[in-house]
Amino acid sequence: MKRAATLARALLPATWAALIALACASLLILASGGAPLAVYRLFLAGTWGNAYGIGQVLLKTTPLIFTGLAVAIPLKAGLFNIGADGQLTIGAFLTALVGAHLPGSFGPLAAVPLCLLAGFAGGALTGAIPGVLKATRGSHEVISTIMLNFIVRAAMVGVGAWAFVRESVHTVPIRPAAELPRLSTVFPSLRGSAASAALVVAVLVAVAIAWLLYRTRTGFQLRAVGKSPAAAETAGISVARVTVLAMTLAGGVAGLVGADFVLGYKHYYEDGFGGGIGFVGIAVAVVGRNHPLGVVLAALLFGTLAQGALAVGAIVPKEIVDVLEAVIICAVVGAAPEVRRLVARSAPAR
């Protein structure tokens, strides 16, 4: 009975956020001259209504799991990573570079892990910089990650001039051995969708992070620093070490986005491929309440929204989904605690 009450209290904010989002969506649809119910029907049909739609939802979910984790891990340690965009850019670029220049004798079992490692390393290096700056110089990680996003963006203009195929904004394709198979090779009904085994990688990474956070000493230290750096320091935990570790790990996970886009989807690195998914990662982490498995579910929600936007694009501008994402974040961080407060106030004292 008590557990049911706890569960209800945990779900209440999410329900509230969903209601606000639905109300805003209906208003916007009406404003654009559409019929809300017809739009919702189309939305469902285009996402979870058929195998192709499901495949596309999974395709859009995969990178969001990585970027959501890249925000959630440092948040557990009380750090804000706004630099996923820069981290995933470097990671994906290195993935493509290694994948294209592998020795021809490498089979998939050697090529894929090597490419994943390259992506992780690239992202981790980019994430380590703000971590080290915070730990040693006290620079606020929000500003340094934003600056690094711009530095990476500018640097890629220079690097691209050297690395891209002539008259294009993408690199040469990776070797076939490094390609991740599409999900449709196992589930033939998903044919036509580009969702790939990168989804499996993403879920495995989420499980590994959950294990790290809740079952290891390092994870405990990370969460302790997040609760109270001063208390953690007193207890003998090195806050500086945890800071560097959290940011490096986060950057590495963001760098794995290359596994999805490069190894599983396009098979090359393309300038600007991210399209702001680093920032959507913040939404994913917030809605997923910083729990790795919550992040997977939230990524699925935002992946559904992204695919649904395309499905309803004929009746309503697909940009409605960007508005909804923002509304959901605001509702979760702003209105939901307020609802909980009201409930707490109206409930009899224990």
């Binding site: 929000v142 920032f279 959507v280 939404a283 940009e319 508005v323 961080v333």
Partner: peptide, 13 residues
Amino acid sequence: IVCGVAINLLADG
């Protein structure tokens, strides 16, 4: 920080 990012997403969308 979360709200700041959300407002930016909201304005863009």
